[in-house]
Design a protein around this nucleic acid. Structure first.
Lengths: 142, 142
DNA sequence: AAGTAAAAAGATAATAATATCTTTTTATAT
DNA sequence: ATATAAAAAGATATTATTATCTTTTTACTT
């Protein structure tokens, strides 16, 4: 469903959303240790998110990755779109050239609603929304 | 969601279900040409399905792959299980060590019901069920 | 019985995803 | 100004997936 890279990205972003601000930044190595994912791989991922203006970074001494309040207004789907792209959520699930609700493949009516619901939810919810859920104790990332 | 191998397998099995019986068999090359997927890869896939008794084959002259009526009673999930395994439908979608409805990750309540529904439907429907849908003109595989 | 068509099995190759390491650039504290 | 800590960028390595090719075994047809 989601690639490993995307799940790493989501976990790291939510960690930063919970723990960082422009006064308190984190380098990829320490984030990787805390949330237990490969450090150099995470660095790549965070660089990509920075380039796409989903998270913030500051170079040099006392630098690191962090999230501003503005960053937290980005949608969850923007993270997945930056890392995996959204192509995997489009097109026929069986790989057929023609497949839509008029002319469905055998699993179209099964997969399309599920896939659409997932994309819709991730499109409607921001990083801030997810962060609040964690702070309220309804979900967790550890 | 499903690997390419699994989608190839499903398409090939449904083709055989529609067109073959123990009087009329198909070799992988001709199946591959008809449904437009790589032939040697398909051969591997069909061999695996044969080994797992999901489809039938006969070696030697006039041999080939085919589906018996008994074969058609196999579930759709058995095809996916044979090729991909079912691991990808289990465990936390974010890769967290602990994640269930009591202690959910941020996307657990979003992904788990969708995933369960997909597995459930593929578990409850047989190759014959899917084949009927195609014959009745409700779905297609080309 | 011999030849042959086809699955089965095994070996190899290409591509994409995941992971790691090294060098360069940048910003800031001193 | 200089040293330094950190992101950014680039190069390399590993693993899994997808794809192809070759050899062996099987069983039917003649």
């Amino acid at each position: 469903m989601l690639s490993k890279s995307s799940t790493y990205a989501i976990r790291a972003v939510l960690f930063l959303s919970l723990n960082s601000d422009d006064e308190k930044k984190f380098n990829p190595k320490s984030i990787a240790e805390i949330i237990d994912i490969p450090a150099p791989f995470l660095a790549k991922t965070l660089q990509e998110l920075t380039k796409r203006n989903i998270i913030s970074s500051r170079k040099g001494r006392n630098g690191g990755f962090y999230l501003t309040n503005a960053d937290k207004q980005n949608t969850m789907i923007s993270i997945v779109a930056a890392i995996d792209g959204l192509e995997k959520f489009q097109g026929c699930s069986l790989g057929l050239p023609v497949c839509d609700s008029e002319n469905p493949c055998p699993i179209h009516h099964l997969v399309a609603p599920l896939r659409n619901k997932l994309v819709e939810e991730l499109t409607n919810k921001t990083i801030a929304n997810f962060t609040k859920e964690i702070k309220d104790g309804h979900t967790h990332v550890f």
